[in-house]
Simulated assay, not measured.
Amino acid sequence: MQSKIGPVDGLDNDGFPFIGANLQNGDIVIGKCAESRVDHSIKLKHTERGMVQKVVLSANDDGKNFAVVSLRQFSSMHGQKGVLGFLESQGNFPFTIQGIVLDIVINSHAFPSCQTPGQLLEAALGKGIACGGSLRYATPFPTISIDPITDQLHRYGRAGFSRWGNERVYKGRTGEMIHSLVFMGPTCYQRLTHMSEDKVKFHNTGPVHPLTRQPVADRKHFGRIKFGEMERDCLIAHGGAANLHERLFTFSDSSQMHICRKCKNIANVIQRPVPGGRKITGPYCRFCESVEDIVRMNVPYGAKLLCQELFSMGISLKFDNEVF
Score class of each variant (00 low, 15 high):
6 G>W: 02
192 L>Y: 07
14 D>F: 12
177 M>G: 05
101 V>Q: 10
66 F>H: 12
50 G>Y: 00
119 Q>N: 10
43 K>L: 15
81 K>S: 11
54 K>C: 08
103 D>F: 00
153 L>Y: 02
177 M>E: 15
58 S>Y: 13
75 S>K: 15
28 I>T: 08
122 E>C: 04
229 E>A: 05
124 A>H: 09
234 C>Q: 06
38 V>R: 12
175 G>Y: 03
120 L>Q: 08
193 T>Q: 11
210 P>M: 03
286 R>K: 12
100 I>M: 09
273 P>G: 08
16 F>L: 11
104 I>Q: 06
227 F>G: 03
257 M>Q: 10
17 P>K: 06
50 G>K: 14
304 K>P: 01
207 P>M: 08
158 R>E: 14
255 S>Y: 15
193 T>V: 09
127 K>G: 05
280 I>L: 15
185 G>S: 09
93 F>R: 13
146 I>A: 15
93 F>P: 00
149 I>A: 11
250 T>W: 01
302 G>Q: 08
58 S>M: 13
25 N>R: 13
125 L>V: 05
233 D>S: 10
192 L>W: 00
154 H>Y: 09
97 I>K: 15
218 D>Q: 09
184 M>E: 01
111 F>I: 14
81 K>E: 12
280 I>P: 02
81 K>C: 06
239 G>M: 01
7 P>G: 13
214 Q>P: 04
89 S>G: 12
232 R>T: 05
142 P>H: 12
112 P>L: 00
211 L>P: 06
90 Q>R: 04
20 G>P: 02
314 G>K: 15
272 R>F: 12
36 S>T: 13
7 P>N: 06
96 T>P: 05
285 C>Q: 03
173 R>V: 14
284 Y>C: 11
148 P>D: 10
122 E>K: 07
56 V>M: 14
324 F>D: 08
267 A>M: 02
315 I>E: 13
15 G>D: 02
303 A>K: 01
157 G>N: 03
77 M>E: 03
6 G>E: 09
174 T>D: 15
177 M>I: 11
243 N>K: 03
282 G>M: 05
290 S>T: 15
35 E>T: 08
270 I>G: 00
256 Q>D: 08
46 H>K: 12
154 H>D: 12
23 L>K: 14
11 L>A: 02
60 N>Q: 07
182 V>N: 06
207 P>Y: 09
285 C>V: 05
48 E>C: 08
288 C>N: 09
190 Q>C: 13
293 D>F: 03
157 G>L: 02
11 L>H: 07
16 F>A: 00
70 S>W: 06
229 E>G: 00
126 G>E: 07
310 L>I: 04
10 G>P: 04
125 L>P: 01
256 Q>G: 01
213 R>T: 01
202 F>I: 10
6 G>P: 09
115 Q>K: 08
265 N>D: 10
146 I>R: 06
315 I>L: 11
7 P>V: 07
